[in-house]
Nucleic acid binder design. Structure first.
Lengths: 230, 230
DNA sequence: GTCTATAGGCAGATAGAC
DNA sequence: GTCTATCTGCCTATAGAC
């Protein structure tokens, strides 16, 4: 291994430690010194490989989003029927979250840690939106050609995407379910969701729900939440 | 307003500010000074009302979990058919996340910020498990009496719970969908999920999924994740 | 009940030796 | 490429005045 390879290896080991610690403790609760200890360096040594802690986070998130987009577009290339495309979106998002839980937890949950208005943050939001557009189109196409019957396309998309991304919180490769079982089950739920006609079902009486005396009022155009209104 | 009321009011305003900031920035990224500024005090003033920053978080999380349990058990009292009980669990969890998004985000996402092994953390985990047991039983009962046809009860439960909890990330009271529409749609998806027989659906070829060079290997019995294996 | 002041520690980041 | 040493600043929490 020559010098360049050793450098690349150190950089990769730093990123591995970073994604693990960021996913477990959160970005804000992880110090550069924690990171350095994990890879056997001092904190100054880490700064030879990364410009800043925030740039490291942005790199990881950009790479994760871009990797997901690339893999998705590659898999969708020769699949045309909306139901097949939706099934593929469900199984690939689920499997990515099952197989790369640390990376996807950081990707899904640390957007708030990037400085508002920074170019890196805006770029990552654009990538996320580009990915979601694949879901939007698959569902809209299925409705347009009559293969899906859906009351609200946006709600259906948000429900199914949450189902898939939640996988990173509980899936274990040595657990009770194989990846194949999870994907099959989630695809079945997704396809059932887009074929089902709306059933009568009332929302619960709000007065029966818990009320928390500290819950703040809703704020319009919440600037802290990039998830708003997608 | 007498002195006791003023004290109670200050305590409530601190909790409101705390849940807002903890939900937006995360617990670790929120300082006691941020909190104090939000309620018009100095940081020392806050410590008259809370024992510590972590005790404040534990109080909020315990109250959120307990409120959810209480409301759920109250609503379930006179509902017996498994499909009706599942529909109620779906719509109440969804509505709680829609109406109390800040509290539920903290409840769902800040368990990792409580000191491992602390009594407060163990207590909150026990509350969460007690809540999940209602889902487990509703699904098991439906399978037992033949009203549900499900390939894997655990997967179905995890999928539907993720769908419901995800609501806190995107729902806005002045947005495109009313609370009633969201609950109706999600109940429809949930009931479709438990009545559908398994369809053939293959998981994607893992070699086609993105691979992240920094993604750490899976660790058995990950002690940092209380979500494991539930 | 809220303040000022401060203790004691850890944060992100940099300088310069080797 | 990694180190030691350090700068500067913010952190949680407490002491004690009013």
């Amino acid at each position: 291994m020559d010098l360049k390879d050793r450098d690349a290896d150190a950089s990769r080991r730093i990123r591995t430690a970073a994604v693990l610690l960021f996913a477990r403790r959160g970005y804000a609760a992880t110090s550069v010194r924690d990171l350095a200890r994990e890879v056997g360096m001092t904190n100054a040594g880490v700064y030879h490989h990364v410009a800043s802690k925030e740039a490291l986070l942005a790199d990881l998130m950009r790479g994760a989003q871009q990797g997901l987009i690339d893999a998705t577009e590659h898999m969708l290339r020769d699949v045309h029927a909306p139901a097949d495309r939706l099934a593929l979106l469900i199984s690939s998002l689920t499997a990515t979250h099952a197989l790369s839980p640390m990376t996807t937890r950081v990707m899904d949950g640390e957007l708030r840690s990037l400085t508002p208005g920074s170019p890196a943050r805006d770029e990552i939001i654009a990538l996320r939106d580009a990915y979601e557009e694949h879901w939007r189109r698959a569902i809209a196409d299925g409705v347009a050609d009559g293969s899906f019957r859906i009351a609200d396309q946006r709600l259906t998309r948000l429900a199914l995407m949450s189902m898939c991304t939640g996988t990173s919180e509980w899936y274990r490769p040595d657990g009770d379910s194989t990846l194949e079982q999870v994907c099959a089950e989630f695809v079945a739920i997704g396809l059932a969701a887009v074929r089902s006609s709306v059933r009568a079902a009332a929302a619960p009486d709000p007065s029966l729900l818990p009320e928390f005396p500290w819950e703040p009022p809703h704020v319009r155009n919440d600037p802290s939440s990039a998830e708003a209104g997608r």
